[in-house]
Design a protein around this nucleic acid. Structure first.
Lengths: 210, 210
DNA sequence: GCCAAGATTGACTGATCAGTCAATCGCCTG
DNA sequence: CAGGCGATTGACTGATCAGTCAATCTTGGC
């Protein structure tokens, strides 16, 4: 750290942040490295001073953010609250992540988690950890009897995560309105829909009527 | 039809079928037009005799298959059966589509419906029609009182479709086992999870215990 | 003021590939 | 069998871009 104390890391961060904006706007495959450099206000070659390749930029962005999410899921699972509350917290965390940095979440979802043929395959193990974290929450609920025992926890986790990702995709595609109210409402609705089900019936956690 | 009676259309079909295999194996962006031509056993130039561009091949594949699915959803909605049965039929149709031609469904999902930055945006309107078809089924159920009135039908449709697509993605990524038993089981589980919910409770359509 | 080391620059290279096109083939018609 | 027309071929072109690299700048220590 003798000769590159602060600005070096700042520049690296600037490139990463610029990449988020460019990847979100144009897509990873439809942008040039020079677009990222321009957006960052930096010379082309500097990108290669900090990163080995264009792909490494995306990998870095993904691993950074996904790690935060996995930590959050683990922390939520450890809380002493009802299972439904845990799932509500997970949904809340992911939705807030999107609200806080929609470009970054767009890049991660569109370019990595939903890109089976390229980065999705590369990060498969990492992506699975999220399913497994959710499945652990469901499994505990099954064991304590609050969740149905005949729906495997891995299956439930896929449904839950799939519903959230579809919701995010709706916002990304601008199919769904993106207001603070909608984001908050979605947190409740997704838990009510997945945990309580779409059908009417006595489920203990009835919807707040009104 | 005088000079190109049969073989002309056959060749076009051969190119489309070859493209499905190549796109599924290598991904749309990571394959060359020459790969498709080779796979079809046809000269490079012939691809451009039948299609204006590489993209038009993908568009054709998507629109062909998506049209079939939209028709199926419409037909299922018109049936005189309970809403849960309708959703079970939709899930069944999509899962059977994957079982029947996994490569084609992989291409459609990975390269179109989940590709927000490229083809997804292009076919957004078409993709939305599927959500709307499912939402129509849910809406009818809400009106007759069998589904909760406080979960908007569009929201429910996103959850339902998202869960199914996540399931398909699991199979595509080979995260989930792909056996006939699993496919059949998934049809029941997905409806039970989404309509009945993950939580235990009296929901009318209780799971078959055993 | 001078030096060393890392930071920064951007022109350049090499490879890749979508799409073109002129030539050839093969079938049908008259 | 000649003429014509669409089907078929594959070498070629033009453009694009990821990644390289030698030169230049900046900074901090002495």
């Amino acid at each position: 750290m003798a000769t590159a104390p602060r600005n070096a890391l700042d520049k690296r961060r600037m490139i990463l942040d610029a990449a988020v904006r460019v990847f979100a706007r144009q897509g990873f495959h439809h942008c040039r490295v020079s677009d990222v450099a321009d957006e960052a206000g930096v010379a082309y070659g500097l990108v290669y001073h900090y990163f080995d390749s264009k792909e490494e930029i995306l990998n870095t962005l993904f691993l950074e953010r996904w790690g935060v999410m996995l930590d959050a899921i683990g922390e939520i699972d450890a809380r002493d609250i009802p299972s439904r509350e845990k799932l509500r917290s997970v949904a809340g965390f992911i939705i807030d992540s999107y609200r806080h940095d929609p470009d970054l979440m767009k890049v991660i979802i569109v370019e990595v988690t939903r890109a089976a043929n390229s980065f999705g395959a590369l990060h498969l193990a990492e992506i699975r950890k999220a399913y497994e974290g959710i499945a652990a929450i469901v499994e505990a609920a099954r064991e304590e009897g609050s969740f149905k025992s005949d729906i495997p926890s891995e299956f439930a986790a896929m449904c839950f995560y799939g519903a959230i990702e579809q919701l995010l995709t709706g916002w990304i595609f601008e199919v769904l309105p993106r207001t603070d109210d909608e984001f908050e409402r979605a947190k409740d609705l997704i838990v009510e829909a997945i945990c309580g089900g779409l059908e009417n019936g006595v489920t203990g956690h009835g919807p707040a009527s009104g």
